[in-house]
Amino acid sequence: MLRFILGKLGDLVPTLIGISILSFVLVRFVPGDPVMLLLGERGADPAVYAQMKKDMGLDLPVWRQYINFATDAAQGDLGTSIISKRPVVKEFFDRFPATLELGVVALLFAIIIGIPLGIIAAVKRNSFYDYFLMGGSLLGYSMPIFWWGLVLILIFSVQLGWTPVSGRMSVMFYIEPWTGFMLIDTLTSEVRELDGLAPFWSALSHLILPAVAMGTIPLAVIARMTRSSMLEVLGEDYIRTAKAKGLSRYRTVAVHALRNALIPIVTIVGLMFGSIITGAILTETIFSWPGIGRWLVASINARDYPVIQGGVLFIATMIVIINVLVDLAYAVVNPKMRG
């Protein structure tokens, strides 16, 4: 087991080096001169220009620049944003809680609805329910979420007026960040003494539509995965034994089958982090959600190259590490995988 863990962690090193090279190289080729971008008008003076270029380390050979970038990154320094003049890491963590909150709520929505639907489809295999649910899940899986978000806004914000169109919080309230999760920070005693539950409901109503938009594809994936995983388990001998023992159908399905069917589902959910970020980029753009997705799109449009480089590297690193953790967790649960 220890060898397996060390092997997995050993594989991580070249992958991380590759990721840092790729994000460095990609951004090197972004058109536009970062020195001019930073200096603006003042860059016209050749002396100022040369000094700035030197300060930024851009006069060094490319491989030296990469070494500097990689050593800084390893120490948690991803450079400074050209637009805001603040450290990229700080900017990232200012926005990360918003994306995390949205992602967690979207995944919860997908899990709470997706797993029961998948179970129903599996138990009622080849029935009308099964075809209906699996057809619906394929529809959800095919959904262009940038359009789906707009349709939700059109129905629930424009036509029915139930939810706000965009943003994270009504401007009427100021919430001191504590956990960074609005749903939690609006429930602290100070906030409740001042405004009651109104800020909480505001946060929730802002969150619902983007979470549904972002959770739709994971919901479809989870429902399909649950169905096929349940079908596999329901054919196993121990299920027949459970039935033969005279256990109720509910107990057989909910306890014996589901517990075993959950392993691949948990793995799929764990590996969804990457697609959550993809979802965040589109969802946050539509709903003006102040998270890292919208920040990255804005940085790409503004050619804020330390942010693109740092943000991309940071996200890719997180994804790789999470994937390894999922692999390890899977190996702990399922010894057959350790081979």
């Binding site: 992958t15 590759g18 990721i19 790729l22 990609l26 951004v27 990457g274 697609s275 970020i277 993809t278 980029i281 589109l282 990255l296 799109v297 790409i300 693109i308 991309v312 996200i315 890719a316 690193t317 994804i319 790789v320 994937n323």
Partner: peptide, 13 residues
């Protein structure tokens, strides 16, 4: 390495 980058993020970069 390519798969470590979320698809849309890699594409927009």
């Amino acid at each position: 390495i390519v798969m470590a980058f979320p698809s849309i993020l890699l594409a927009i970069t």
